[in-house]
Design a protein around this nucleic acid. Structure first.
Ligand SMILES: Nc1nc2c(ncn2[C@H]2C[C@H](O)[C@@H](COP(=O)(O)OP(=O)(O)OP(=O)(O)O)O2)c(=O)[nH]1
Ligand SMILES: [Mg+2]
Ligand SMILES: [Mg+2]
Ligand SMILES: [Zn+2]
Length: 578
DNA sequence: GCCGTTTTCGGCCCGACTGTTTTCAGTCG
């Protein structure tokens, strides 16, 4: 039982209770618990099985939900959840996916018309049965059919890198509208989440500007879902939704704070303000009694008004950042400029599209001091992986290249490396004697993903304990929106890496981002060092490093937590300390 | 159901847009 499955049960309980018209705060508790569990880095199953006490410390999980977690881990089910599903059919929950349909309408549709699924709803709307219900009219019927169509066409959450390619031109377009003063990305886009549900953009403009008219006239707009004076929502041709919020310059900071989120962070900030006798909204910080405006021009002003330093957007998830801010313990998040090299790249020798020389040239252009060439090993035959002989030949070639650099007085260094395959039994795909000649041995799983969690954990821990591996590359093997991570106990893996001085990779390829943000944070807490690498398969991929940096920042990583922020001699010392 | 720089009881973020409403509930951000 994975955390995400447990979280799903609590989300369903929340939805079902809400449809039943239960106390909205009780509903919120279950929904919040689902959210907290989904973001939890440690495996709940292990926590419960090992009787670890940390559940009691997690805010949002009290007695009742704690008991239910134990029940779910031990029996695989939750009685309370099952009982609710006897009262309401499970498919009823899919109705909530239709935008414009909430718990109240679901209840009405089910009670009055027996509608249990989206296809039921579609039939009823087409047969004009909906408008007979209280509070629903012709327009509601039309909107339901449109919303079902949009749901069917929806491509779900977009990877950050893809979403950015659609957001950038829209932001440019908005900047060029008459009367516009500032435009900023907001929402999950600004927080650099690995996937983006919609594009949120904030605009500050002069009074009387016709920003909304121009926004919905953007050529990429496929459909306008809502248009108001300060807020509009459209669907773009690419399938992404875009929300634009327009406010006065005086409220820009408060609006940016609001629209950047996250929702949980906003609520926590507002609760805190309330206790201080203040009210926070997108319009500013106000005195609760007199309604007098206190702050709001900049984000710094807003945070200062509630007694906090400015908090970087990437960590605004209500996951400890407010407590850290209060104690003056906010991390100094890593910056792309801190990086001195890239420790995972491929060449044409295996499945790369650029030659060794091209990769090196691009790394120098990037401003790096070093790069490690880490081609695949022979087990990855699709990639024409290297056997021992070819590794030795590549070593010679790199030695020659480095000699040339010394002759020309360059300080750039090419490190000899490998991405050695971790075979199903946890052994490594190349002779130890050959691996020992390399500066950087990265190891990774490339096959047999469908092992049990115990088997996969043992396999990776064996590689970690080999005494020859420096870095575990793309440690969970996931491909965002494409392939789930394989089952592995991350806490155990991190414990092993800590013990054997092994480093965990944060793979910057935007489809991977592996370790993810949550696991990076856990690694840092456990004292495990991270290498942020691109796994470039072409010289152009070196630029993907920014996605790694985004994820690292979301994982609270600082310069000191990351191996490749160090100058070469220091990095090499750490690699040799084994 | 959760929680406590006042609280173990009584609160729980705050506001925009839409449709059907004759004054606002529902949904969403
Ligand atoms: N105070 C408050 N702010 C909210 C609420 N819902 C959303 N927001 C703010 C914070 C969000 O980051 C921002 C944009 O909302 P979205 O629904 O687009 O969420 P977000 O972009 O964080 O995630 P996404 O990737 O779009 O699913 O609006 C809310 O209920 N209360
Ligand atoms: Mg969003
Ligand atoms: Mg949005
Ligand atoms: Zn690789």
């Amino acid at each position: 039982m994975e955390n995400i499955e447990i979280a799903k049960i609590f989300h369903e309980i929340a939805d079902l209770l809400e449809i039943k018209n239960e106390n909205p705060f009780r509903v919120r508790s279950y929904r919040n618990a689902g959210h907290v569990i989904a973001e939890l880095p440690e495996n709940l199953k292990s926590i419960v099985e090992n009787d670890e006490p940390i559940l009691d410390e997690i805010s949002g999980i009290g007695k009742s939900i704690h008991e239910k977690i134990v029940e779910i881990v031990k029996t695989g089910k939750c009685k309370f959840h099952d009982e609710l599903l006897k009262e309401l059919p499970p498919t009823i929950l899919e109705l909530l996916q239709v935008s414009g349909i909430g718990p109240k309408k679901v209840q009405l549709l089910y009670k009055e018309l027996g509608i249990q699924s989206v296809s039921d709803l579609e039939k009823a709307a087409k047969a004009h049965k909906i408008h007979t219900l209280a509070g629903m009219g012709e327009k509601t019927e039309e909107n339901i059919l449109k919303a079902i169509e949009n749901l069917k066409q929806s491509k779900g959450r977009f990877k950050l890198g893809i979403a950015m390619t659609y957001a950038v031109p829209l932001i440019e377009y908005l900047k060029n509208i008459d009367g516009v003063i500032h435009v900023s990305e907001a929402g999950s886009l600004r927080r650099r989440k690995e996937t983006i549900g919609d594009i949120d953009i904030l605009v500050a403009c002069k009074k009387g500007s016709r920003v909304m008219d121009r926004f919905i006239a953007y050529p990429e707009v496929r459909e306008v879902l809502a248009k108001g004076d300060t807020k509009s929502t459209v669907i773009l041709r690419c399938g992404l939704q875009a929300d634009v919020r327009v406010l006065d310059k005086k409220s820009y900071g408060a609006a940016l704070q609001y629209f950047t989120g996250s929702k949980a962070h906003n609520i926590a900030i507002r609760e805190r303000a309330k206790k201080m006798g203040l009210k926070v909204s997108e319009y500013g910080v106000f005195d609760e009694k007199t309604d007098k405006w206190i702050a709001g021009e900049t984000e710094e002003d807003v945070y200062r008004a509630v007694g906090l330093p400015w908090i970087p957007p990437e960590i605004r998830e209500n996951a400890g950042e407010i407590e850290s801010a209060l104690n003056d313990k906010l991390p100094h998040l890593i910056d792309v400029k801190d990086l001195k090299g890239d420790l995972h790249v491929h060449t044409t020798e295996t499945d790369g599209a650029s030659t060794l020389d091209e990769m090196v040239e691009s790394a120098i252009k990037q401003g790096y001091e070093y790069i490690a060439i880490t081609d695949h090993s022979k087990a990855v035959s699709i990639a024409h992986g290297l056997d021992e002989k070819r590794v030795l030949r590549q070593i010679e070639e790199i030695d020659k290249l480095n000699k040339r650099f010394t002759v020309y007085g360059s300080r750039f260094t090419v490190l000899k490396g490998i991405e050695v395959d971790i075979k199903a039994d946890g052994s490594l795909d190349l002779d130890k004697d050959v691996l020992a000649k390399l500066d950087v041995v990265a190891a990774a799983v490339h096959s047999r993903f469908n092992m049990t969690e115990g088997e996969m954990t043992a396999r990776i821990v064996k590689a970690i304990s080999s005494g020859i591996v420096h870095i575990i590359a793309h440690p969970t093997g996931r491909l965002i929106n494409e392939r789930m991570p394989y089952a592995v106990n991350m806490t155990e893996v991190l414990r092993a890496t800590k013990m054997h001085n092994v480093i965990m990779e944060l793979n910057s390829y935007p489809d991977r981002l592996d370790l993810n943000d949550i696991h990076c944070k856990l690694a840092k807490e456990m004292g495990v060092m991270i290498a942020i690498s691109t796994d470039s398969h072409s010289r152009f991929h070196l630029e993907n490093i920014r996605f790694g940096i985004y994820t690292a920042r979301r994982g609270w990583l600082e310069k000191k937590d990351v191996l490749n922020t160090m100058p070469l001699n220091k990095a090499l010392k750490i690699l040799k300390r084994k």
